[in-house]
């Protein structure tokens, strides 16, 4: 068990330093990079919170789709092979639903403000599962 402060709280402190202390003193290219660095910290904070559940949900779906178990990377690699060979495509509702949820999960972490993500939500695409209720 890691000791305190928690990763979340440390990240929030680094974010506050960037926003309140560093950014006001920067200009030009350095200010731009500081803004990018701030966005990266936000991605990490969301990943820390959401990825464990998302990864459990994705793994469970992949195991069900492929009928075998393995690491997330191995399972994704096998899915890629099946798609590349034409064995699975979007006419497979289970695959379609899996790819939608997995992609929505990536966006929720990487870029929740992306227009395409907001459009997809408005069109009724489901969010990635939290991973708790999947079985």
């Amino acid at each position: 068990m890691q000791d305190k402060p928690s990763a979340e709280k440390l990240l929030a402190a680094a974010r506050a330093f960037l926003n309140e202390t560093a950014m006001p003193q920067l200009s030009g290219h350095a200010a731009f990079h500081a803004r990018v660095a701030g966005n990266v910290l936000d991605i990490l904070a969301r990943e820390l919170k959401l990825a464990p559940g998302f990864n459990r949900a994705e793994t469970a779906r992949l195991e069900s789709l492929l009928g075998e178990s393995g690491s997330l990377e191995e399972l994704n690699r096998k899915l890629c092979d099946k798609i590349a060979s034409g064995e699975m495509d979007l006419s497979n509702e289970k695959l379609k639903s899996h790819l939608i949820k997995t992609t929505m999960g990536k966006l929720a972490i990487d870029q929740p403000r992306y227009q395409g993500y907001k459009t997809a939500k408005a069109n009724g695409w489901p969010e990635e599962d939290s991973g708790e209720i999947i079985k």
Binding site: I100, T103, M104, K106, L107, D110, Y114, G116, A120
Partner: peptide
């Protein structure tokens, strides 16, 4: 980490 935006666009 912007690869995911193109995945959602490609799916759509």
């Amino acid at each position: 980490r912007r690869a995911s935006e193109t995945e959602i666009d490609l799916l759509r």
